[in-house]
């Protein structure tokens, strides 16, 4: 059976809403944020001006892509206060919610790569060129090193995340080639290739949210019946064993840089193994479960 329909059991047990709850909420969030930006140029309602690289909310509150600001600083340009404050606000936000919640709740490329992953499952495409998951940190290092050497924000030439918003708000031009390339790469070459292996912004946000109190937890992992549905939908399935299997040595909390807090594991699990947890005191540090028990 090569074609997986991972939510079938969850739909039967929990109903269609609960089996896709966070997926729809995420889509709603992603599209609402995009809508707030689009409302300016299209409807003349300027709640937010700018794009994901930098924006101004109600003409007052700045939000800036911290990686873009960091590149600019590394290129030797003293960014004015507004940009630094904007980057600080964004970092603070994602330090709280878990850096990679940007990836699953805001980033527009997520919709493209989720579509590729879904098509992959439905068409039963098995080819998978393996890439190291750590490649994103190499790319992040490259993104930060190039401005030092060249004094140009080189990543911003090809950054597909800002490209989507810039394209929709200011004209896409040939930018859609790049988006099509990412889609085809994820569909045909490497499963979850871009977001799960390469994206340096995802790596950056992962690091920014390292100590986030909001985390996923396989709180009822003793109920897990190894149906593997969560593995099929998780964009970073390599992180699941350590949460689900005490033998792998770590607690039920998904304390990892890679988790995007997308909540698909929670939705798709017919046994309700997973839940979001807020841990202000960080009760489950990364220590072997055996040592706790």
């Amino acid at each position: 059976m090569s074609k997986r329909r991972p939510a079938t059991e969850a739909v039967a047990v929990k109903g269609i809403w609960k089996a896709f709850r966070f997926l729809w909420l995420r889509r709603l969030m992603q599209l609402s944020i995009l809508g707030l930006f689009v409302a300016g140029p299209v409807l003349g309602v300027w709640l937010i001006s700018g794009n994901l690289s930098s924006s101004l909310i109600l003409g007052k509150v700045p939000m800036s892509d911290p990686l873009a600001v960091l590149q600019s600083l590394l290129a030797g340009h003293p960014v004015v206060a507004v940009g630094v404050i904007g980057a600080g606000l964004v970092i603070a936000l994602y330090a709280l919610t878990g850096g990679r919640s940007f990836c699953s709740w805001v980033c527009p490329v997520n919709m493209i790569t989720d579509l590729a992953a879904w098509l992959r499952r439905r068409l039963g495409i098995r080819t998978n060129h393996r890439l190291p998951r750590k490649a994103r940190y190499w790319l992040l290092a490259l993104v930060l090193a190039l401005p030092v050497v060249t004094e140009i924000l080189i990543w911003e030439f090809i950054n597909p995340i800002s490209l989507v918003y810039r394209g929709l708000l200011f004209g896409l031009g040939a930018g859609w080639y790049l988006l099509a390339a990412i889609f085809l790469f994820d569909l045909l070459v490497t499963s979850r290739g871009w977001c799960g292996h390469l994206c340096p912004l995802g790596a950056f946000y992962g690091l920014a949210g390292k100590y986030s109190p909001l985390i996923m937890s396989a709180a009822r992992r003793e109920k897990c019946d190894d149906c593997m549905d969560c593995y099929a939908v998780c964009p970073e399935p390599q992180i699941l064993p350590m949460a689900l299997k005490p033998k792998k040595g770590f607690g039920p909390v998904l304390k990892t840089l890679d988790c995007t807090r997308c909540g698909r594991c929670l939705d798709v699990c017919a046994k309700d193994v997973f839940e979001y947890q807020v841990q202000l005191k960080n009760q489950h540090p990364l220590i072997p479960v055996k040592a706790v028990e």
Binding site: G40, A68, V79, P147, L153, E156, S162, R166, F170
Partner: peptide
């Protein structure tokens, strides 16, 4: 040269 090292490409000026 400085412009390429600094512009964040947000388009607020365009708006």
């Amino acid at each position: 040269d400085d412009f390429l090292a600094s512009c964040l490409r947000c388009g607020i000026c365009v708006n």
